[in-house]
Nucleic acid binder design. Structure first.
Lengths: 221, 221
DNA sequence: AGGAAAATAAAACATTTGTTTGAAACTGGC
DNA sequence: GCCAGTTTCAAACAAATGTTTTATTTTCCT
């Protein structure tokens, strides 16, 4: 086995990330992963105990790499204006989720995260506390600064969901998006433009929510 | 079998929608569906040929019911102002996707649609042409009217994706959202408020995009 | 060099699962 | 009342799949 560059355990993680992302937990078979990693089937159980153990290891590794390579604060100082920090936050999400350098877009691991949101696995709980909650808190902080006022936790959370939802929808629905509009498919060369759009759209949304909070109007319908 | 209210075929469709939505195609077993429908396993193959045939029938029925009971134009006239039509459009999406009357929220069929976006099945192609594309076209029409100008197909599509993405994200990520914030979980009693928020946020987003289109600014970073 | 521990390999096992089969029960028309 | 067609049922089948077993090879410390 000295013909391989990476050791067995890493090759398994690599192949498993790809195949779990493409097919989902149930549809991904140990045999397919073993074949892709050029590894004996039993090696998977040896290194990761069972299929679920392997999945947990993949999930942890995927999040770690993604948030390490594309931190939400993309090298920006805290004293830079909050609009630009939101811009960096959104760009980081797009590139983390969809770029080849990140979770690999369509064919790759971005969809593994989408699957977790849809149906969290037992291994997701840890990832939620370690990565997602702090990530959300950072976004909320940025939104407060942009608004200049604090509209309360409920509206803040709604804003955060609207922003994150736009980003993740691109990763999640990319198969369908590219069937409807190639211009807006989240391909490598479109990521910059799409991130810029979502940033502007979200700035407008935040401004509108601020207005509505400061001067609530009675409904007419 | 005369003790059942609905005929076998309908009971199977009913149970299959529930279970496919909860577990996904692969993870849902014929046996679980048969048991839930109180039907013999072979009855499924008899009425729907095979598992894939059943899934196709479920998908078609789910979309038909959803768009029939919650049309995107929710009884509004075309000459009403476009902001209110957007409001109706978004409300319809929320209630179609998440209400008990619609695709049944968390435990139900809303997630079946989310799964299709993530990994379209062969049966999805037909649904795409019949329901989703016209639905998108309607939204684009509304956005044009709100803007008062036509920013071009690319920006229009981006707006549509941002709006639809927010709605679908609630349906898709509801398991995680409710773990982070119960106030913003898309439960029956929250739907009105969430739809209202997404509407406002989107109005702000559209306005901002219109501004940026009319007076583009050079980037400073 | 020797030997214990770690790693890899091939084969077999036990379950799960979609599908088929052939018989039984039911339905509606004559 | 009876029969052809339809529907339901229990059992069996065949394929796929996660896991275990046992043997062999490799690694690494003394």
């Amino acid at each position: 086995m000295s013909e391989h560059t990476a050791p067995t355990k890493e090759r398994i993680l690599e192949a498993a990330g790809e195949i779990f992302g493409q097919r989902g937990f149930k549809d991904a078979t140990i045999r397919a992963i073993a074949q892709a990693a050029e590894v004996n089937i039993a090696a998977i159980n040896y290194h990761f105990r069972d299929k679920e153990g392997l999945y947990g290891a993949v999930l942890e590794e995927v999040f770690h790499i993604g948030f390490t390579r594309f931190p939400a604060t993309l090298g920006l100082d805290t004293n830079i204006d909050p609009e630009q920090r939101l811009r960096a936050f959104i760009r980081a999400m797009f590139f983390r989720l969809l770029s080849r350098e990140g979770w690999g877009g369509i064919a790759g691991r971005g969809r593994l995260i989408a699957r977790e949101l849809l149906a969290p696995s037992p291994a997701f709980e840890a990832v939620l506390d370690r990565y997602i909650k702090p990530h959300k808190d950072l976004l909320v902080t940025i939104i407060i600064e942009i608004m200049g006022v604090n509209p309360g936790p409920e509206k803040l959370m709604s804003c955060a969901i609207s922003i994150i939802g736009q980003c993740i929808y691109y990763a999640m629905a990319s198969p369908v998006i590219r069937k409807i509009s190639t211009d807006n498919a989240p391909t490598e060369e479109n990521l910059d433009r799409l991130a810029e759009f979502v940033w502007l759209f979200s700035l407008g949304g935040i401004a509108k929510i601020k207005d509505a909070t400061l001067s609530p109007v009675k409904e007419t319908v």
